[in-house]
Design a protein around this nucleic acid. Structure first.
Lengths: 115, 115
DNA sequence: TTGACATATATAGATTATCTATATATAATC
DNA sequence: GATTATATATAGATAATCTATATATGTCAA
């Protein structure tokens, strides 16, 4: 993910599942939507996304269908499954716990260190 | 970092710098303090921490001193440098932007997708 | 009409963060 | 005497993401 090489990581699958909970999308659209909704914070690379989508599909979190005939260009749409929705909920719980803990450690409050 | 293998993230350096902004610490103490302050969310492994400390020191973000003589066991203390404090501030800015963007994407608000 | 750029998907290989496993040594506890 | 906690360290494995590359079509400007 864009920004800085150090920070992000590990939560791309959660973001993709979050997008697809909004509506079905094809890969390129996910990259654009993620960039727009995050105000250019997330710049997901195609080389990251497509292998990730394949793996989420293989694990039953997503399913695919190709665009209706008649369209010039092929677009492979992804739809989130029941299992994907459950996985998203679990990932969100973990994200919340993680980011809350970061706030606690960096927050500036003075927790005494029970050494 | 503990929790779940997926989530973790690349923010361990930020957390370590955050701890050392509170006060000087030695490695083992950082692991314990991080675990306590995060209420067991962060379970940083020794095999992660020590190489990280060496690298932060090599880059001038930390400096070390050994425990005063007389003590039985050797403890290597780490102190954050001016450069380390600046780096922490930058990493926090990035963390804030990142977590804010996650909230925007997952938040549930209905941003229209300008496809 | 040619070239450049945006759209669209895909894979191979490199990089890097973190983990597991292992090593060493002392102190405390059973 | 054996086990567990303290304390630091390194080697090797795993996994997430990136860069680079490939392919193909559509659009727009020169």
């Amino acid at each position: 993910m864009g920004m800085n090489k150090n920070l992000p990581v590990g939560s791309t699958a959660m973001l993709v599942l979050g997008l697809l909970r909004q509506k079905d999308m094809y890969g390129y659209q996910m990259i654009e939507t993620l960039r727009l909704q995050s105000q250019n914070i997330f710049e997901l690379k195609a080389g990251t996304l497509y292998p990730l989508l394949h793996s989420l599909e293989k694990n039953g979190l997503l399913e695919t269908y190709d665009q209706d005939a008649g369209a010039a260009r092929i677009r492979r749409y992804y739809r989130i499954t029941k299992k994907g929705i459950a996985s998203l909920a679990e990932r969100r719980r973990e994200w919340d716990a993680y980011s809350f803990a970061v706030t606690r450690v960096l927050g500036g409050e003075n927790y005494e260190t029970t050494t």
